[in-house]
Design a protein around this nucleic acid. Structure first.
Lengths: 187, 187
DNA sequence: TCATAATTGTGATGTTTGTCACGCAATAGT
DNA sequence: ACTATTGCGTGACAAACATCACAATTATGA
């Protein structure tokens, strides 16, 4: 329970009890209900979130009023509107619960303090950022090389659990196809 | 000349002369001719590159033998097959010169040493990685929200210099459209 | 429980984009 | 300078995908 974040961090760097207590003191535990917003577009983005349980969607509203899913965030994922968070500008996206969700949140101040004062966590954040960058490049590559059907099958293979937890219209949005097309692809 | 990397790093963190000398000692200067490969697919990826001058393309060959441009890298950009570099697995992409190119290269060992022994550079790498992650997310968003024509116009606005330095068939590949479609879009 | 809203499937049709084919211009190497 | 290669534009056609409309099903909340 209380040491889920510790296990997660220790996949990258080992921590003593005291070190983990110190790290944890930079976070706040928060709970959100289904459809609650963690980040609203046009508001300031004060936190980055570590998901303990539940499921989030990061949504961009385009000029035509259509909603596009930039990403999902499940257990042990880190999520925020990172562009807005790191540069302290207003949110261009919203972060909303698909399910009731428990998170640990960290402010930019505390993120910077932790990185500056505790090299192990700076190393951890660097590893996570590199991994996120690599994952984004893989997704870009799937847009360049694959048809909608192929992207659907890749998602099904990589994150089968999403198909049980997320309405298909949201998966369509994440894949960049209409819900009608996705429906026809699935058989 | 010799302090281009220093200026680049000092956009993020200040360095003393001695510190810069120390940093620079982790890099090697290399020169490549047009069409030379810095990384060949299926080979090991031993270096990450900082571009001093010139222009590179990061290319993925798909199962049908088609080539897709994952990204370009110009002056002051960092490039590698990061997935292969960080995990020391074989390259899934190739990195090739579009123009004669001068780089500073750093091995993974030296990258890790620098990050571990010199907090300012770990901070710099973290900032760069976060920026790269954010740029990738913006590109994903352009695939989700924009037509080929809109992506073309966004690229023209963001990197007009590419249109003078890169054949349009490569721009088409970067944008994820056929060269014929790009040709028809441009007027 | 019942009414309402959200989600899904499917047909008909239109738009966007890819593919094939061809000719021409520009470039690079000898 | 000449030739081979590479890059570019465009027509004709095919494939992929979006959009609109409507019905059916499944969740949700008072």
């Amino acid at each position: 329970m209380g040491n889920q974040l510790r296990k997660h961090i220790e996949e990258v760097v080992a921590l003593s009890d005291d070190e983990y207590t110190f790290v944890l003191s930079h976070f706040s535990k928060e709970a959100f209900g289904k459809n609650d917003f963690l980040i609203q577009k046009r508001e300031s983005v004060n936190h980055c979130y570590y998901v303990i349980s539940g499921l989030l969607k990061l949504v961009y509203d385009d000029a035509d009023g259509k909603k596009h899913i930039t990403s999902f965030a499940m257990e042990n994922w880190w999520e925020s509107d990172f562009a807005a968070f790191f540069t302290q500008t207003e949110a261009q996206m919203s972060l909303q619960c698909i399910e009731e969700t428990h998170v640990l949140s960290i402010s930019l101040n505390n993120y910077n303090k932790l990185a500056a004062n505790f090299p192990k966590m700076e190393y951890f954040f660097l590893k996570k950022s590199n991994a996120g960058h690599i994952a984004s490049q893989r997704r870009i590559l799937s847009f360049l090389t694959s048809s909608a059907k192929e992207r659907y099958e890749q998602l099904l293979e990589q994150y089968p659990v999403l198909f049980q937890r997320v309405p298909k219209m949201l998966l369509a949005s994440y894949l960049g196809v209409s819900r009608e097309t996705l429906s026809r692809l699935s058989h």
